[in-house]
Amino acid sequence: MNKIIEIDQLTKRYELSGGDYIDALKGIDLHLIKGETLGLVGESGSGKSTLAKILMKLEALNSGRILLKERDSQLYKPKEYFSHIQMVFQDPYSSLNPRKTIFSIITEPLVINKSLTQEELRRIAKDKIELVGLNSQVLERYPHTLSGGQRQRVGIARALTLEPEVLILDEPISALDVSIQAAILNLLIDLQKKLNLTYLFIGHDLNVIRYIADRVAVMYLGEIVEMGSTDDIFKNTKHEYTKKLINSSLDLKNDN
């Protein structure tokens, strides 16, 4: 079993204004196997985005460690680290730099990591933006002129430009209509098959998680309370919170 990411006893405490604190992560153990999709679900505020942000080095960890390809993440140079791992952020509004055009936002990771000509950058940007179902006209525009779902797709296009081996997707399709959701899910699965990518997929839509995830981890109050194959989690549910989640899931109302 090829573990591309291993997380060991990870903890994170946020100090709050007023001397209080919150233990957002209370000793997380988790690994990602190369080529798989791990679905991460859980209560709002249970620490999913915190975990993702620590993996992306946007937050410092308090204790524990993260191995990327069996090497401590602290030992990587940023450039090298982020050529392996990229993220699509939960909030499509604050995660795009408002002063940059969509073209520069999408090509930024490439500019940092590779030396390409302007034409090559144009071609890749056009490629990626069309891949997520947007018209290449938007490349010249600024984030504030895009709708929520359009911004979210810019975030996906950006994360894909480097074709990183590991992709963290924090609610990547929550702002999209179901037809585009379907197209993006098909795209993610396609890319995964072609390039053997590994996904950490954070989401609230249990049908989407059942569809895309090979394994599922359930978080509750800073801990992973249940983890297993997707089938197992949904059929032999053990933890009370997971049961509650599954029972609360709404289906299309089809009566009267």
Partner: peptide, 13 residues
Amino acid sequence: DEPTTALDVTIQN
């Protein structure tokens, strides 16, 4: 406008 997109299903309900 999309009031429950970021909520888990129990809180959403």
